[in-house]
Amino acid sequence: MEELKMQTIRLRLKEEVMSGVAKIPVIVDALTPDKLFGKSEAEIKGVKIWWGNREENTGDLFEVSVEGDATSEAEVKIVMDGDLSRVKYIGAGMKAGEIEANGDVDMHCGAMMRGGKITVRGNADCWAGCEMHGGELIIEGDAGANLCAMYRGEMTGMTGGRVVVGGNVSECAGQYMAGGEILIKGNADILAGLNMKGGKITIEGDAIMPGADMTGGEILVKGKVEDMIPSFKFVETTTVDGEQYRKYIGDLAMTEKRAKGILYVK
């Protein structure tokens, strides 16, 4: 078998970009493996990205270096360093390849992604994995609100792919989720799986008000559930992966006809 070639593009945010009184966000949806595939170092430095209300050259905001070659998008890996806490849309819309972000990242990381893999070695702010269709998003720290949810006005959140959060998640994780899988190793704040209609959320820690207005899909809470939604119907006690759970269906507040969501609670 032919050995997979790898190209590594290193992007380090320059210190002066975030050293002012205001931390003005940099928007990097133009810097995904599929969009940078085939570009030279000089060409990458010339890619336009937004910093506030002005467009700048990537090379003016990031130190850029390229090692190795790639014969396809899948062989491109982007490594991001520096203060990424106001770098928005990391890996948003990406189709292939890999991104490794070393540190806390700002909003919309992995939003609308279709393929490839993003690893965040830190926390991810709100809307990570929002309306994600495929690929893999690994957040080693905590995730902000609306993880894998939808943008305002949309009625469908994540439809495919796999997301793992090592820490806790904020409000409304997986809202309007229709497919794919989310594994939360810590706790989930209020309304995880709100309006969920498909896919699966596993919460290893505790959850508050999970599953409200659910019409499909499955939520499994291994820890405690605080403020259980009062409009779920108890079905039976059952065993999942060798452990006992109380199985509920809901949400009956959405009418009986639509209440097809399943919630497993200890």
């Binding site: 939604i229 409009s231 507040a253």
Partner: peptide, 21 residues
Amino acid sequence: KDYLVLSALRAVLYGHEDVVP
């Protein structure tokens, strides 16, 4: 906890008062 009370009211108005704690 307003959210919980509202969900319970909906369940009752839709005829599912049996599930409300």
